[in-house]
Computed example of a mutant assay.
Amino acid sequence: MKTKRRAPRARLAAVGVATTCALFVAGCGAANEGGGGDAAEGSGVSGTIAGAGASSQQAAMQSWIAGFGEANTGATVNYDPVGSGGGRTQFIEGGVQFAGSDAYLEDEQLTQARERCGGSVIEIPNYVSPIAIVFKLDGVQELNLAPATIAGIFKGEIKTWNDPKIAADNPGVQLPASPVTPVHRSDESGTTENLTDFLNKAAPDVWTDEADGNWPVQGGEAAQGTSGVVGAVNAGNGTIGYADASQAGELGKANVKLGETNVAPTAEAAAKILEESQRVEGQGDTSFAYELNRTATGGAYPVVLVSYLMACPTYPDQAQADVTKAFLNYVVSDAGQQAAAQAAGSAPLSETLRGQITPVIDRIAAGS
């Protein structure tokens, strides 16, 4: 069953294209250290395109822009990390040529994107990353947490670290009687939406709220953005939150207890989620949106963020079509995925999935 989410708060195109160059001009130059060695995809194209969207992709996007630019010196790619909701809005309104989003298009937005693109819209997963359950608890270096325990913590129902539910997940570990302080995002976030989707599907008896980019539960501590959550958890003791694993720093990262197996938030475990998930029905043959299997077994890490690139199959300008096609091909190429893995700790796409995605990208062309 498809997950419903609230309509994103408007972050309109006024935020948009005029600021993209300013925001990522530095990225285009400074990120050269992250460039993929083989940027031959679409080598020699020229023109300028702009994108906007998920900040989760920011470090990876800098590496893609740098690597692509090495082989395409006449091409300029700008990206404004305004957030998933803002990126989708700008893309639908025609303000940018592509968007990055931590959630696939649904309902009214899918209809609007199809209208903008002339009938169908391209959605491809390009950035897969584990969301770590981050914690700071003096004297505890490793923590295992079952989905229902995580749900109880963020619901505010588990109030102390020596609660029997946490103790049952960690036999033999000396847990203090100190308070648990859960930290969540204060802003609308694809990371929040993916965490709440996991909680709803893996622990439905405890977490009865549907997936939502806006934190649905009262209480706890709120912080702005990934850096705010990491900072708040790091500043306390007995704190627990959630963040892209690549940005967790020195914080503890809990293993998710699935049956008798404790799965760590590694890139390798995150990558397995797509192998155990199904494509969303009704999105069209140019969409590779996935309904993630949050209860997957076989070593897949279930608290994972899959971020997408959205583009049109046709553009009114030949140069925009050429650069968009070439750039997307580089992003999903082995070189592009390895560059993102080095820059952002993301999980590279499989060869099988790449082989399915590339023919859709190759259909991008100029047209009315």
Rank of each mutant, 00 (worst) to 15 (best):
W207Y: 13
D362Q: 15
L12V: 11
I364F: 11
T208R: 00
S346H: 08
P348M: 03
D107L: 09
D138F: 01
A132W: 01
G236F: 13
R279N: 10
G100M: 01
I357D: 03
V128I: 15
E142V: 06
L258A: 12
T239K: 08
V15P: 06
R6S: 03
G152Q: 09
N293G: 04
D334P: 05
A243G: 12
A75L: 04
W161P: 10
L258D: 15
G220V: 09
L292I: 00
E123T: 05
Q218M: 07
G118N: 06
E157G: 06
A202N: 00
Q112I: 05
A22Y: 13
C117L: 07
P176Q: 15
G298I: 02
V180S: 02
V360D: 10
A146L: 02
T352L: 12
S55I: 07
D212T: 08
N78S: 11
G336H: 01
G100A: 01
A50N: 12
E93I: 04
A54K: 02
G259S: 11
T208N: 00
N255I: 02
M1F: 11
V331Y: 00
L143Y: 02
G355P: 14
L110T: 06
S186Q: 05
L328M: 15
Q62V: 00
S350A: 10
F68R: 01
S186Y: 08
L110C: 10
E250Q: 11
A264C: 12
T111C: 07
V17S: 10
K136F: 03
A71R: 03
F198P: 00
D362A: 13
R185E: 12
V128H: 09
G118A: 07
V206E: 15
M310V: 09
T3C: 03
V280T: 10
A267H: 07
G172V: 01
W64C: 02
N32E: 06
D205E: 10
D107K: 13
P81C: 08
T226W: 03
E281F: 05
A289I: 09
P176G: 09
Y315M: 06
V230F: 03
D244M: 01
A300F: 09
R116Q: 12
Q141F: 04
N200L: 01
C312D: 03
A10S: 05
D187S: 15
D163R: 11
A202F: 00
L137D: 15
A22S: 14
I153T: 05
T358K: 12
H184R: 12
R9V: 07
W215Q: 05
N200P: 01
V134S: 08
L353D: 04
G85H: 06
G119V: 04
I124P: 11
G44S: 05
L274F: 14
A235D: 15
P313F: 08
I65Y: 03
A243M: 13
M310W: 10
L195Y: 06
I240R: 04
S346D: 13
K201F: 01
F135D: 10
S129T: 15
C21T: 15
T266Q: 11
E93K: 14
V25E: 15
I92G: 04
K4F: 13
A151Y: 04
N234K: 09
S120I: 04
L199T: 01
S246M: 10
A31G: 15
V17G: 11
E291A: 14
